[in-house]
């Protein structure tokens, strides 16, 4: 249990603003506030799910954790050391990523052997016959055959490509893997195969996952803890069962009610959330979701401090008067 409690990643007041420029030399006119003040901790060996609609900053958050894009403000600590001060080789060996589009994240001119083997060659871990052996092992771990390594990405189906991407991420034996919508582009049956594989690998190697998706049922299935993001902020964060059985924030409730249930007898005329996520360029002051649904109590939230509070053990919610019942 002590192993479970060790904090692997800790983010404090994390912000990422993308400047909007009108010309080559002009200064920024405005900023897209993709991630706007986010605090969270991820324990070693847990699966941390991040859900939200498109445009709410899920992917940007993931890229910030991996230092793929520079941080505007705030800090991220990886097992105690600030990732800004870590060496690139050290960071990439410990943290890996699986992208959403399996076809787009692989060079179509490279064979599977060189796709999976590239991290090993770059880090000087294997070469020649040893590399072939290692790539074969990795392919067998993800449920493919070792003779697949001479093929090229276009010869595989979407699910198999995602398995190759996972093998590439596993090649350096990392401690942490970021999964950015790994099953969004897949069919349900293939999605089930990939999810089973991810769970098995996570358990076997006691990896830490951040699982980003917009399908709440999938996130609930695989995650230990779930954070719900809305317009660059985390609005609710709790254990997976807790957040689905006892949602506190109105946005979480809306997301859960929007999941189509594969059971025709339970179909009720539910309330459908109207409108889209507002532009993160000029986010409304106060509670952004209260603004979207035009809540009568929304004006009360404008001047409040909306940082997360712990309402129950391990259940953090944005304390706004309009969307949260505490």
């Amino acid at each position: 249990m002590s192993d479970q409690e060790e904090i692997l990643i800790e983010a404090k007041n994390l912000k990422k603003y993308f400047p909007i420029k009108s010309g080559m030399f002009s200064s920024a006119k405005a900023h897209v506030r993709a991630v706007d003040g986010v605090d969270f901790t991820i324990k070693r060996g847990e699966v941390f799910g991040v859900v939200g609609e498109s445009g709410c900053g899920k992917t940007t958050l993931g890229r910030l954790i991996l230092r793929l894009i520079p941080i505007t403000e705030g800090t991220i600590h990886y097992s105690g050391s600030n990732i800004q001060n870590m060496k690139n080789t050290e960071l990439r060996r410990k943290m890996q990523i699986v992208f959403q589009d399996p076809g787009g994240s692989m060079n179509p001119r490279m064979s599977v052997r060189s796709i999976i083997g590239e991290p090993l060659i770059v880090n000087g871990l294997a070469d020649g016959a040893e590399l072939t052996k290692k790539v074969g092992e990795l392919l067998e771990i993800v449920g493919l055959k070792s003779n697949h390594m001479t093929r090229f990405p276009h010869e595989f189906s979407g699910g198999q490509k995602q398995r190759i991407a996972l093998a590439r991420a596993l090649s350096l034996d990392p401690e942490f893997i970021l999964l950015d919508e790994p099953t969004s582009a897949l069919d349900v049956s293939v999605q089930a195969q990939v999810l089973n594989l991810l769970q098995a690998i996570q358990k076997e190697r006691s990896l830490t996952f951040v699982f980003i998706a917009h399908d709440l049922a999938v996130v609930r299935h695989i995650s230990d803890r779930v954070a719900v993001m809305y317009l660059g902020k985390i609005v609710e964060m709790a254990d997976a069962d807790e957040i689905y059985n006892n949602p506190k924030h109105a946005y979480t409730k809306a997301l859960i009610s929007a999941i189509p249930k594969p059971d025709p007898s339970s179909v009720v005329d539910r309330e459908v959330l109207s409108g889209d996520v507002p532009s993160p360029v000029n986010p409304p002051p106060g509670c952004a979701f209260g603004h979207r649904v035009n809540h009568p109590k929304y004006p009360d939230s404008i001047d409040l401090d909306l940082s997360l509070v712990e309402v129950e053990p391990n259940h953090w919610v944005q304390p706004c008067p309009c969307c949260t019942e505490i």
Binding site: A192, A217, H221, I222
Partner: peptide, 10 residues
């Protein structure tokens, strides 16, 4: 094979 909210987690 469809994950649902009522199925057992993990």
């Amino acid at each position: 094979c469809t994950p649902s909210l009522s199925s057992e987690r993990k």
